[in-house]
Amino acid sequence: MTPLRIWYVAAQRLCNLDCPYCVSVGSWSKSRRYDWEAPADRDAFAEIVSWIGARPFEVSLRLGSLGEPFASPFFLQQAAWLTRRPNVRFVELLSNAALLQRRLPTMESTANLGKLSLWLTWHRTQMSMEKFIAAAEFAQRAYGCFVVVNALLFSSGDIDDLQRLSDAADQAGLRFNLDLGYDPYAPSRTSSATEPTRTVPAIRDHGSATQVIDAVSAAGGDPELTRVTLLSLKSPKGRPCRSGHDYLFIDIHGNAYRCSRYSTLDRDCYGNVLDPDFDLRLRPQTWAPCDAAGSCCNKEDFLNLKAAADLYQRDVPSLGWTDA
């Protein structure tokens, strides 16, 4: 079988930060009190991890959660196990970096940290830039992790800090990525086309998509990546996409879809990984038209569009890095 890229979002919820723009909302919300909402969620996570680690083909995994993975010892234990599976090429965690220097050393005896990738997003009202960069540099230097320093653009007031972060990352020898921040309460459960202005606060702040692209460039981001982001939000329908061929999304319940947008729309579910009779059958053809009218907002998904083919670096251990 063709090597498979999987984005799995687990139901781990505990988070040590309190960002007002967090996209973990509603039934997918994070928690400041508990790690797993129910014991069944933790059990399901372990079963899905076992399923991934038992695939008879190569898997590249972005292992997401609703909270902060380094706040959860059990989550880290399972991630460490995956890094030692021969079929797993890499395990990519999404983190705020605040607990890295404390928790990463505890994984050294149980994980192959050379197969651990870290997508680290800076939350400027929650953590100083100096502490954030130090944690990211520590993970890359001390353990050889593939590290990406990520930031979010919400308004013109962010640009100076984002420029400073880009410069600091460059000086520390770290990769830098800039994404658009989203309004977590923008409507999403509709198949109708969605104007990016409803989802992207930066467009409302700057006045137009063109001005946002210019702002991203000024802040050290990649304007081509931003153009693809805006295109995916507005009009993915009918565009060739390889999701469902060598890429798969698994939701917090174990349901498998070609991408997270199809999950939101509950469209064409392949089945549930937790079902003992589950038999994953992906499309043999590389490209197929997307049937979602709009709101393809997650980079893990829209980098599979043919329109993004020149951006995505498929040989690097990340489902989000584009050499931006």
Rank of each mutant, 00 (worst) to 15 (best):
R198F: 14
R198E: 14
T199Q: 06
T199S: 10
V200P: 01
A202L: 05
I203T: 01
H206Q: 13
H206Y: 11
H206I: 03
G207K: 02
S208T: 11
S208F: 10
S208K: 00
S208Y: 08
A209K: 05
A209C: 13
T210N: 09
T210L: 06
T210S: 10
Q211V: 10
V212C: 00
V212F: 01
I213Y: 01
I213P: 02
D214T: 10
D214N: 12
V216Y: 01
S217Q: 08
S217I: 02
A218I: 08
A219H: 02
A219C: 04
A219D: 04
G220N: 03
G220W: 11
G220D: 05
P223R: 01
P223L: 03
P223F: 09
E224H: 09
E224C: 03
L225Q: 07
T226S: 05
T229A: 15
T229R: 02
S232P: 05
L233R: 00
L233F: 08
L233Q: 04
K234H: 15
S235C: 09
P236E: 05
P236N: 04
G238L: 14
C241M: 06
C241P: 06
S243I: 06
G244V: 14
H245Y: 15
Y247R: 10
Y247N: 08
Y247E: 09
F249L: 04
I250Y: 12
D251I: 11
I252W: 14
I252F: 15
N255A: 10
N255I: 07
A256F: 10
Y257E: 07
C259A: 13
